[in-house]
Amino acid sequence: MGTKPFCDACGKVQPPSPDIDYFAAFGLPRKLNIDLSALERSFYRLSRKLHPDVYAQATQQEQQWSLEQTSLLNDAYRTLKNSIARTEYLLKLEGVVLEAGKSEDGAAKESRVPADLLEEVFELNMQLEEMRMTRKMGEDDPQLRKDLEKAHIDFESQLAASDSNLQDLWTLWGTALDNEDTARKSETKDQMVALLDRRRYIRNLVRDVNEALEA
């Protein structure tokens, strides 16, 4: 089976290829710098062509293929439009097994504290526990709240820095891919994995602080 949703010769819908990846579904190379506006336009263009209503009078097989192609297209678009999901997906395509952590959909997994954050995380955990005890006693500590708000700003800043650094790695990946530089590709993949692990942990800290402040 080909990777295109329609036959070049007859224009009819085709069954999705079992080994097609989401980048190929949109005719894209395995690069992470994507024109999101162009991706959206391609998604809606293909969605209109593949919509089941278009095949209401077609054969049962074509109707089924239309549904399967639409489902694939939706999954591909949902993954590629999200910067983190897109990065994780490419790494999986490249055979990288991601470290345990917490996924973007919030599914709980085990996380490790980044070495350079050990002291900050220890102090934060103490503050969070103190806030819980204060709340349990029906009291409030303005200074503790102020400290947690500062921690929230600091971790949000680190999260933004991680996103910026990740985009730099996307560019390095694209260059290595163009140059067929296997060593640089491998190095960049390792850096992306490490950065995603760090970002995942920081995002969880931001969530914990938000929960403490909003409780």
Results as ranks from 00 to 15, higher is better:
residue 182 T to Q: 13
residue 165 N to K: 07
residue 19 D to W: 08
residue 152 H to C: 10
residue 13 V to G: 06
residue 200 R to T: 12
residue 160 A to W: 01
residue 156 E to A: 03
residue 110 E to I: 05
residue 149 E to H: 05
residue 125 N to H: 14
residue 62 E to Y: 03
residue 178 D to M: 07
residue 171 T to K: 12
residue 44 Y to A: 10
residue 89 Y to D: 05
residue 128 L to M: 03
residue 150 K to G: 08
residue 20 I to F: 05
residue 210 N to A: 04
residue 22 Y to V: 03
residue 106 G to C: 10
residue 127 Q to F: 12
residue 66 S to Y: 08
residue 33 N to L: 01
residue 167 Q to G: 03
residue 51 H to A: 11
residue 198 R to P: 07
residue 110 E to F: 12
residue 16 P to D: 03
residue 204 N to A: 13
residue 6 F to W: 00
residue 29 P to V: 01
residue 69 Q to W: 00
residue 70 T to Q: 15
residue 151 A to V: 02
residue 166 L to N: 15
residue 41 R to A: 12
residue 209 V to F: 04
residue 3 T to Y: 12
residue 148 L to M: 11
residue 204 N to K: 15
residue 134 T to S: 10
residue 131 M to A: 12
residue 55 Y to W: 11
residue 31 K to V: 05
residue 14 Q to H: 03
residue 79 T to V: 09
residue 81 K to E: 11
residue 72 L to H: 15
residue 58 A to Y: 02
residue 52 P to K: 08
residue 86 R to I: 01
residue 53 D to I: 00
residue 97 V to W: 03
residue 34 I to E: 01
residue 56 A to P: 14
residue 135 R to Q: 10
residue 107 A to D: 03
residue 41 R to L: 08
residue 192 M to I: 01
residue 71 S to Q: 13
residue 113 V to H: 09
residue 142 P to K: 14
residue 46 L to A: 13
residue 164 S to M: 06
residue 54 V to N: 15
residue 155 F to C: 03
residue 189 K to M: 06
residue 48 R to G: 11
residue 140 D to W: 07
residue 67 L to K: 07
residue 130 E to C: 06
residue 141 D to C: 08
residue 6 F to Y: 02
residue 176 A to D: 14
residue 100 A to L: 10
residue 215 A to T: 02
residue 54 V to W: 00
residue 209 V to A: 06
residue 56 A to Y: 09
residue 2 G to H: 13
residue 24 A to H: 02
residue 190 D to H: 11
residue 199 R to D: 10
residue 162 S to G: 15
residue 188 T to Y: 11
residue 132 R to C: 01
residue 199 R to C: 05
residue 170 W to G: 02
residue 51 H to F: 05
residue 205 L to I: 14
residue 18 P to N: 01
residue 189 K to H: 03
residue 173 W to R: 12
residue 103 S to A: 09
residue 205 L to P: 05
residue 194 A to W: 09
residue 91 L to V: 02
residue 65 W to H: 05
residue 141 D to H: 12
residue 69 Q to H: 00
residue 156 E to W: 02
residue 50 L to I: 05
residue 48 R to I: 02
residue 174 G to W: 10
residue 72 L to E: 14
residue 214 E to F: 04
residue 14 Q to G: 06
residue 181 D to W: 11
residue 130 E to L: 10
residue 171 T to V: 06
residue 138 G to M: 04
residue 63 Q to K: 14
residue 172 L to Q: 10
residue 102 K to C: 07
residue 135 R to K: 09
residue 200 R to K: 10
residue 78 R to P: 11
residue 49 K to N: 07
residue 162 S to R: 11
residue 122 F to E: 14
residue 64 Q to A: 06
